[in-house]
Nucleic acid binder design. Structure first.
Length: 288
DNA sequence: AAAAGCCCCTGGACGC
DNA sequence: TGCGTCCAGGGGCTTT
């Protein structure tokens, strides 16, 4: 499921119920997520206050009063659902869903359940002082919505690459947070073919060209639009309140094989190809 | 070092 | 209705 807009939507849903609250109790109903949870996982969270909740790429980082950071990734099918432990209709609101693997009971009465059928998601506790050295975060490229991300940076990261532009944008070391959907949609907005060599958005010296600029604008625009819509809901993604994101209704190319290209005057037909064992959707007429 | 495969896991859609 | 097959929004690890 979740790419940057969905993870950001989850972060915004969790923030009001986590920020400033303490972990009153933690249930690790299954410890075999992507990696096993440590045996003292619940004990290290219990009693800690949340002092911050930020997103980095597709990771969520929960700052704890203990000086540790709870690092979480939703994998392909992870989601959070917020309910309340107290109040009437408690039974109905807090019913257990299949694949609720971890449940946080917060001091403010919020019950936060992490649900993940495929268990590609992960949770990890690390010392805040060691965040810089964390292997999962260390190699991540720039935040696409951050100030540092621009055409020069993207062109520099693509210069000399032997891979396709699709593969380069999917590489979290080049730019952090895009996945299969938003790579396809960003390339569409920039009118660039996913098959194009990544190196062609840089000049010989590694500097940016007009394609890099268009791509940066396409990436930022599609991510901002998707966040504003609450992300995309295909199979799994739901917001923390259980509502669906709406951006899937605005896909130009993703999962639209055979449909007419929505660009005015284009008239092309959306095509599906396979790159790196994953589907790519694009318009072969206006994306070059 | 970079790039390409392999694999983790469950469930939904589809064809027969 | 029941099966088998394929596919899915990610990314770490291993192999080339």
């Amino acid at each position: 499921m979740p790419e940057l807009p969905e993870v950001e939507t989850v972060r915004r849903g969790l923030e009001p119920v986590m920020q400033g609250a303490r972990f009153a109790a933690v249930e690790a109903r299954r410890r075999d997520l992507r990696w096993p949870l440590p045996s003292d996982f619940a004990a290290r969270l219990q009693g800690q206050a949340v002092t911050g909740l930020v997103r980095r790429a597709k990771y969520l980082l929960v700052d704890l009063s203990s000086g540790e950071v709870l690092l979480m990734h939703l994998g392909m099918s992870g989601s959070f659902r917020v309910a309340h432990d107290c109040g009437q209709r408690t039974h109905e609101r807090t019913q257990h869903l299949t694949h609720d693997h971890v449940v946080f009971h917060m001091s403010n009465g919020a019950r936060i359940a992490f649900n993940d059928p495929r268990r590609f998601g992960s949770m990890k506790l690390i010392r805040r002082a060691e965040l810089e050295q964390e292997p999962l975060l260390r190699a991540l490229g720039p935040e696409p919505l951050g100030n540092a991300f621009d055409a020069a940076l993207l062109a520099g990261a693509c210069a000399g690459k032997k891979t396709s532009l699709k593969a380069a944008l999917s590489d979290q070391r080049v730019v952090a947070g895009l996945g299969n959907i938003y790579v396809c949609e960003a390339l569409y907005r920039a009118r660039l073919s996913p098959k194009r060599s990544a190196a062609t958005i840089a000049t010989r010296g590694g500097g940016p060209n007009e394609r890099a600029q268009a791509l940066v604008e396409g990436i930022r625009a599609v991510l901002n639009d998707a966040i504003a819509a609450g992300g995309s809901s295909l199979r799994d993604h739901k917001r923390t309140d259980g509502e669906l994101g709406l951006f899937q209704h605005h896909f130009a190319v993703y999962d639209r094989e055979g449909r007419r290209c929505p660009r005015r005057g284009c008239g092309g037909t959306i095509k599906r190809i396979v790159q790196g064992a994953r589907s790519t959707f694009f318009c072969p007429v206006c994306q070059r």
